[in-house]
Structures are given as structure tokens and as C-alpha cells.
């Protein structure tokens, strides 16, 4: 077993089962954590999956960040725990202030659902340590609001601190600096628009997502899990 992962489920999340299947295929134990919970179970890693949390009303992630569970997610992150937000989970983490920047509507105003090529620009990150420097990964995106933005001063700090882990090789959505995935300053919280959980099996056309999820699982201490 390679770690225990809490997958946060909001009303409107729709990728939690994909995340569970992918993470368990990589050896993890997973637990769903309903958004009304005020504490996390005994987990090493927290994943916020994709979907449309709380209907994405007002702005994507704007209401989800006030869900009771987010206090516990914040505590986990502040204690150095590993947190990954995928797509809508990325949007939630930005709204919560756990990641820098914000996700705008795609520059072409189209919902985009297709494969994209990504470049690993920081393989020292715990979220890409299995990748070679500059390795190309093929992982799908599936979003309308994925155009990442932050103010120019902050971008300078983010670049200087090597927080951009993944960049698009051909920018599909107008994201600033081609950013597809970025960490917080400490490097333990990561958000990305592509869906690594959808690229983990031979039948999915690419297994490059396992590079990302597997890297993340490598951070967890080895432990035995009782079969539930």
C-alpha cells in the first residue's frame, strides 16, 4: 500500500469515482470525505476531484470554499500535508486562497474536452518526481474555466520559486504563462486543470496521468491498511 487518500466530495463533484479507481490501481487506499465533515479521517493525502461543486454558482469554487470540510483541508495543508486539486478542485483551492491565482473562462469561450500535451517544468516537485525533467505528458482536459491568471508581480515570485509544475505545450485556454498546474509557495498543495485520473489505464489511451498521481502517492509513508 502506498498511502491513504481522502477524496473530498462536494454536491456536484463528479470525478470522485475516477479518482478512487485510478488511485487504488496505483496501490492507494481511498476514503470519500463528504463536504459537511469538519475533520478529515486518518489520511496522508487529500484530493479535491473535478466536477461542479455547489453548481459552480457565482464563480467556480466560490461556494465550495466555504464548505465545512475546507477548514480541515486548510489545516492539513498548513501542517505540510499533501493536497491536490484537479480541475474544479483546482478552482476551489484557488478560491480558498490555498493556491495562487484564479481560473478565468477559456479565452475562446468554448468548453474544451480533449487530450493535451504537457511539459513537466519542475520534477523536483512531489507531484512530478517520477517524471524526467522536461518530460511530455499526454493527459485530457475537460473544462470551461481553466484559463489560469495571477497578477504579474505574483507570477514573478511563482516562477522564481519554481511553482509551475506543468505547462501546456500548445496553450488551449489562454492560461497565463501556459500554466496547467501550479503549487503553493511551500510546494505541498498542487492544482492542475488536466485530469490525470483519466489517463491511468491502457484502455484510456495514455497512462501518463499515473506519473502525476504516482509521484504524489510516493510522498506517503508506507503503511499497512486493514481491509475494510
Amino acid at each position: 500500500m502506498s498511502g491513504s487518500v481522502g477524496i473530498v466530495v462536494f454536491p456536484g463533484s463528479n470525478c470522485e469515482r475516477d479518482c478512487r479507481r485510478a488511485l487504488e490501481s496505483l496501490g492507494a487506499h481511498t476514503t470519500y470525505v463528504w463536504h459537511q465533515e469538519t475533520s478529515l479521517p486518518d489520511v496522508d493525502i487529500v484530493v479535491l476531484p473535478g466536477g461542479f461543486a455547489h453548481g459552480d454558482y457565482l464563480r467556480t469554487g466560490a461556494i465550495a470554499r466555504f464548505s465545512p470540510v475546507m477548514g480541515a483541508v486548510r489545516d492539513h495543508a498548513n501542517a505540510g500535508g499533501i493536497v491536490m486539486g484537479i480541475c474544479n478542485g483546482f478552482q476551489v483551492l484557488c478560491e480558498a486562497g490555498l493556491l495562487p491565482g484564479a481560473l478565468r473562462k477559456n479565452s475562446g469561450l468554448k468548453f474544451i474536452c480533449r487530450w493535451v500535451d504537457l511539459r513537466v517544468d519542475n520534477n523536483q516537485s512531489p507531484f512530478a518526481a517520477r517524471a524526467d525533467a522536461g518530460q511530455r505528458l499526454r493527459i485530457p482536459i475537460n473544462h470551461f474555466e481553466g484559463s489560469w491568471y495571477c497578477d504579474p508581480g505574483e507570477l514573478q515570485r511563482i516562477r522564481a520559486n519554481d511553482q509551475v509544475v506543468l505547462r501546456y505545450t500548445a496553450n488551449p485556454n489562454g492560461a497565463l504563462d501556459d500554466v496547467a498546474g501550479v503549487t503553493n509557495e511551500r510546494g505541498n498543495v498542487f492544482g492542475l486543470m488536466p485530469h490525470p485520473e483519466r489517463a491511468c489505464e491502457p484502455s484510456s489511451g495514455s497512462q501518463d496521468g499515473a506519473v502525476i498521481l504516482g509521484s504524489m502517492l510516493d510522498t506517503a509513508p508506507a503503511r499497512e491498511h486493514a481491509h475494510l
Partner: peptide, 8 residues
């Protein structure tokens, strides 16, 4: 806090 996102 909520109605606007000060980043954008």
C-alpha cells in the same frame, strides 16, 4: 470575501 474574486 465572497461576491467578487479580488484576483481578477
Amino acid at each position: 470575501r465572497f461576491l467578487a474574486n479580488p484576483v481578477i
